[in-house]
Design a protein around this nucleic acid. Structure first.
Lengths: 144, 144
DNA sequence: CCTCGTTATTTGCATTTACAAATAAATGGA
DNA sequence: TCCATTTATTTGTAAATGCAAATAACGAGG
């Protein structure tokens, strides 16, 4: 293997960690964390989701998610409801307070997207995002 | 903001987490962790580094790194030496055992690179890596 | 309508992680 | 030289994380 900074997982991690660290710091004064934002963003896209579903879309381990949702529930951001059809499953819903927090986080998230992609043309952005999705899909080859 | 899977930090995190999870699982039988691999890879590139230097290149928090290096030292993979010129600093060196472990991890890392980039042309790969470096640099705008 | 294997979530517990404070040494004036 | 400030690392401590086991409910087959 050549130099570290030509190693893809390295580049990926480095960029991800850096964005995550900045974002975390920035939303802390709002009483939010990066992981909370991920849950809220997922619920904004579609409200009323199962824990397992949320775990998949947020890439947060399901046992970690349980405790994160505990904390968010305590803060009144989300509410658990048993699924009517399947009593094993939990449906997670955002509350009014959760929506208010989401509204405050959205512009921050948009700013991060803009800063990260500063100087990228629309075509370059599209190519990059497509590559990241493809890369993610490629990992199927190693088994889930 | 549009759908989650068009949000760059989301795509970045998702891909990174997935690669990291697979890699971690795979190297566990060897008694290694992903973070250990990062340290070993950094030392492979240049041996004899300060903690702060390693923290920067691996994106591991310096206090976390201290304890990780404690563990690696216990396993005999690395050794701390006080810097001759500056008694505050520690120089971290890989040991023979550390090099042996590195040799075993290298082919795994190379396989991950290959799997992740399966189907990417050389040009696409180059573009992607350049974009990730650029993205990382763009975050300077938000302050370190 | 039981049982057995599967699925969804939570809990137990040990480890990892990060922020902040502590320690220790260098550096640059007064 | 002495002191104040900065730099490098470690340590204290609380929170986050992840694996494995526990719990609970579903669903298929007999």
């Amino acid at each position: 293997m050549g130099p570290l900074d030509s190693y893809l997982p390295y580049l990926l991690n480095r960029a991800g960690v850096r964005i995550a660290a900045s974002f975390s710091e920035e939303v802390r004064p709002l009483g939010a964390t990066l992981q909370m934002w991920r849950v809220l963003a997922a619920l904004r896209e579609r409200d009323g989701r199962r824990m397992g579903d949320l775990s998949d879309t947020t890439s947060i381990e399901v046992s970690t998610l349980t405790r994160l949702v505990d904390a968010m529930e305590q803060k009144g951001l989300v509410a658990r409801h048993r699924d009517a059809g399947d009593a094993r499953a939990v449906m997670l819903h955002v509350t009014a307070a959760g929506r208010r927090l989401t509204e405050r986080l959205l512009p921050i998230a948009e700013r991060y997207e803009a800063v990260a992609l500063a100087g990228f043309s629309a075509a370059e952005t599209k190519t990059l995002k497509a590559a990241l999705r493809r890369l993610y899909g490629n990992m199927d080859a190693l088994g889930r």
